[in-house]
Design a binder for these strands. Structure first.
Lengths: 202, 202
DNA sequence: GTCTATAAGGTGATAGAC
DNA sequence: GTCTATCACCTTATAGAC
C-alpha cells in the first residue's frame, strides 16, 4: 500500500467542503472559504466541480449514506430480538459518534432541498423490513408486549439520533453543563438498549 | 376587544419573516422575498428592523420559546409519576404539532449561531428539575425500575421531538409513504406515553 | 410610514496566461 | 493542473422624496 503524504487537490477540496457545508449549510457556505480551507485557489474549485451545487452533491451523498440507518449486514442473524436491537443500537450510535456535527446537517438539507433525495441514491434499510416482520411475529407469539413495529422502529431511531442534535436545547432547559451532557452521551448505547428492552419485556 | 381586520405592517413582516426563515434558514432567507411575502417594500423592512440579524432575532426568540420544553405549569401536581409523564408528553407533542416545520429550524439555528443563546432569554424548564427529584425518589423507593433521571429525560424529549424532524430520513430508509408516516405521527402521544411507562414499570 | 433609487460590497462562475 | 483577473449578478443597507 502506498503512503501518500500529500493529499490530492480533489481530496483537500472534498474535506474542506464537507467541513464548511456541515458548519454553515449549503446557503451559508462560501466557495471562497472552501478554497481557503483547502489552501487552493477558487478557480481550481470550479475546475474540479463546475458549480457549488455539484460540489455540494458530492459531499452530501457521501455524508448522507454514512448516517442513514442502513444495517443490512445485521440481518438474518440467529440472535434474539433483544440481541438484534442491541446490535443495531451499538452499530448505529457508533456511526453517529464518528461525526456528530453532520447529523443535523443531513437532516436539515434533506428537508430544505427535497430534490437532493433524487440526487442521492436512496438506500432502503432492509434491516428495517426484516425487523418489522420479526417484531410482528414475536408479538403474535406473545414473546414481547403488544407494539406496533413501525412505531417501535421510530422510537429506536429517535433514541439513537436525537441526543446528537438536541444537545443545545436540552442543556438550555435543564441547566446541564456541556461536560455533564457529554458524559450522558457516552453512556447512551447501554441506556438506549436497556430502555427499549425494558419497554418490550412482559 | 377590537376587531383588527387589517394587520399592521409590523405584524405582516414578522409573519412573513418567520415563514421565510423557517423555510430557508438565516443564510438562505432573503430580505427581498420577506418584503414580497409581506406585500410591503424592502425599504420599510429596514424601517422596522435595522438589519437582517435584528429581524431574525425577533423571529427566533419567539419561535424558540414556543418550542423549548418548558412546562412549569405541570409541576407539583398530585398525580403519579406516570400521570405526570403522560401530561408532559401530551402537552409537548401538542405544542410541536402546531408548527412542525419550525422544530428543525430552531435546532439548526441554535447550533449554527451559538451567540443566539445569549440573545434569546434562556428559559430553564423547572419541570425537569422537579422531574429529576421525583424519579430519583421513586427509584429509591422501588416504585419504578432503576433509571438515571437525566437519561430518562433525554429519552422522553427524543421520543417526542425526533419524529417531527427525522421524517424524511425514516421514510427513505423504510419506504414508508408520507401518508403512512403522518398516520403514525398522529398516534404518537399514546405510543410515546405507553412506551415510556412500559419501560419504567417493574 | 411608505416608497424609489442607489450605494457598497459580496458571490458564483468564466476566460485565459502559465 | 493551477493561478490571476474579471464579469455579471445578487444582497444588504442607506438616503431622500412624498
Amino acid at each position: 500500500m502506498m503512503m501518500n503524504a500529500k493529499k490530492s487537490s480533489q481530496e483537500l477540496i472534498i474535506e474542506a467542503a464537507k467541513s464548511e457545508f456541515v458548519k454553515k449549510g449549503f446557503s451559508g457556505a462560501r466557495m471562497q472559504e472552501i478554497a481557503d480551507a483547502a489552501s487552493i485557489n477558487k478557480g481550481l474549485l470550479h475546475y474540479y466541480f463546475k458549480s457549488k451545487e455539484a460540489l455540494f452533491s458530492a459531499v452530501f451523498s457521501k455524508t448522507y449514506n454514512r448516517l442513514t440507518p442502513c444495517h443490512d449486514h445485521l440481518i438474518n442473524s440467529n440472535y434474539s430480538i433483544f440481541k438484534k436491537l442491541e446490535n443495531f443500537v451499538d452499530c448505529y450510535i457508533s456511526e453517529l459518534s464518528k461525526s456528530p456535527e453532520s447529523v443535523l446537517f443531513v437532516l436539515n438539507e434533506l428537508n430544505r432541498h427535497p430534490n437532493h433525495q433524487t440526487d442521492t441514491a436512496i438506500v432502503t434499510d432492509h434491516w428495517s423490513v426484516s425487523f418489522f416482520k420479526d417484531v410482528q411475529h414475536k408479538v403474535e407469539v406473545g414473546a414481547i408486549k403488544n407494539v406496533c413495529p413501525k412505531q417501535l422502529y421510530i422510537n429506536v431511531i429517535s433514541l439513537c439520533v436525537f441526543p446528537f442534535i438536541g444537545g443545545k436545547m436540552i442543556q438550555n432547559s435543564t441547566n446541564l453543563t456541556k461536560e455533564e451532557f457529554n458524559k450522558l452521551l457516552s453512556r447512551r448505547k447501554k441506556e438506549v438498549t436497556t430502555f427499549i428492552i425494558h419497554a418490550l419485556q412482559r
